[in-house]
Design a protein around this nucleic acid. Sequence first.
DNA 1: ATGGTAATGTTATACCATACCAAATTCATC
DNA 2: GATGAATTTGGTATGGTATAACATTACCAT
Lengths: 164, 164
Amino acid sequence: MASANRPLVTGFPGSDHDHGVCREAVLARADALCRSRGMRFTRLRRQVLELIWDEHRPVKAYELLERLRAERAGAAPPTVYRTLDFLLQEGLIHRVESLNAYVGCGDPGHLHPVQLLVCRCCAAVAELADDEVARLLRHKAGRMGFQADSAVVEVEGVCPQCSS
Amino acid sequence: MASANRPLVTGFPGSDHDHGVCREAVLARADALCRSRGMRFTRLRRQVLELIWDEHRPVKAYELLERLRAERAGAAPPTVYRTLDFLLQEGLIHRVESLNAYVGCGDPGHLHPVQLLVCRCCAAVAELADDEVARLLRHKAGRMGFQADSAVVEVEGVCPQCSS
DNA sequence: ATGGTAATGTTATACCATACCAAATTCATC
DNA sequence: GATGAATTTGGTATGGTATAACATTACCAT
């Protein structure tokens, strides 16, 4: 079992990526995390997080809704958005602002800066958690008299698989 | 008159900011730029850009639409969105992804990386064009095998006016 | 004037997100 | 186990963001 202090998913999944294992690890971590915080990792929340982790790609809310309805006939937009809000608050997923979409967090459980790498070819997403970037931004902002709290950083480009 | 190679607006407007002058300079530059590229800076485009530059804050599309209707009764969503697309393409405005809003570009006329500083208190926006940030992001992305083309960078925090 | 291109008008609709209240579930306590 | 408070989920309606598709008008070179 993965350490509770190490990221579960970093970078783009290579050809050796066993997604079954990846998924289970992520879900197990989510469950443990919620428990430890006294939050409930309910059936609905688990279902939605599973759907998000079906691929290493951002998923749109209504796409999620459609897929969720296969398991849960009455699901409506609020069902999805409420669950997404919960998962965002618990740091289990990230919102991709430039796509209006949501993607699993590969390193839940600790606060960390987030920089997303989004492939414009296949839409795969990898996640950096680079303090140097965060520090530099804070510093540059500070020189303008701006007190930086957080940042949305989404890099668009081409992932290793697509460029080869 | 400002040099054609120097940014017109940098940082947050201080108490000495003469917005009338700022606005006129921006509009004159936009006009000159469009001319030099063989594009038409039409009445509609000028009206929309003026509305955007009413303040150093992001404006929402439907807010813009409402205000535009004062001058142009028949305006509809496509009127606004088409004009926004034009202004974006010409680099005269930026889209703020984290707010679904649009803000004037203080340094149109040359390609430059953009990092926006958004005050969560008063919504004022300043614009960095920092190559060091852009380079660092490209470098960090490159270490993941990712070829970075561009980036959305939006820093949330508190501006000098609001923190004092 | 004329014809081609670019810009704008107009209607409809798709997509993204939340407000609001009701019903059901969970959980601590008795 | 029953009870009641709090959380979660169901369900309806609506607000907010953005674009498709086609008609019409304005501009400009010839």
